[in-house]
Amino acid sequence: MPVSADAPRPIVDARGLWKRYGALTVLHGVDLSVAERELVFIIGPSGSGKSTLLRCLNRLEEPDDGSIHVDGIELLSPKTDINAARRRIGMVFQSFNLYPHMTARQNVMLALRKVLGKSRDEADSIAAAALHRVGLGERMDHHPAQLSGGQQQRVAIARAIALEPRVMLFDEPTSALDPELVGGVLNVMRELRESGMTMVVVSHEMAFARAAADRVVFMADGQKLEEGPPAQIFGDPQHERTRAFIRQIDRH
């Protein structure tokens, strides 16, 4: 398909994604396109398919149909080396998923060593820089069990950004955190966004979405019902389901 010269090629371009679990259809032909340096927020009630959509974007979930291009690579093609492609796609999980038998530094170093083939010294200095960047320069040799939830999530972000991904996927990154620890993680995400990282975020942090997102996507029942700038989605939602969802969120 020819790409027009003035439209920048999107970093993420997913089209017509279908995902079924037996009789249950979780994604009904969803499209999602994310431009370079864009921060896209995906919101919607639980069970709307937003996490599944996100997990399709690095093929942790295998879509039943559709196409996904990330940085020009067709993820679903059998010819694609998925491990090589995933280096370009960072992911942060709700439950952090740090390796408990390794220190923070070792958590960040593992993929640098085994996937990028960096030397120990090189991996070590990249890991140190990434951990400093998320404000954990003093905690590099702590194990996950010795860190707070917020600190663990920041290590998880460092683990992902150390590989210099083209896009970062956040799957409810603050949902498992005590309220007082949310701010530290959001600050790191804000800093990432200011540095020009392309980000797709599934989250219920509406204040953060209002302040930082370029675009908000509202999903329900496995479909993208509405999308637009945060001012429009939060201030003047067009779809009845979006209005109901925003009202409910605002009540909290």
Binding site: N83, R86, R87, I89, G90, N97, Y99, R159, L163
Partner: peptide
Amino acid sequence: GQVEAARSTGLS
């Protein structure tokens, strides 16, 4: 989630 985290960083 441990495997998912590892695979998401490109580990086989």
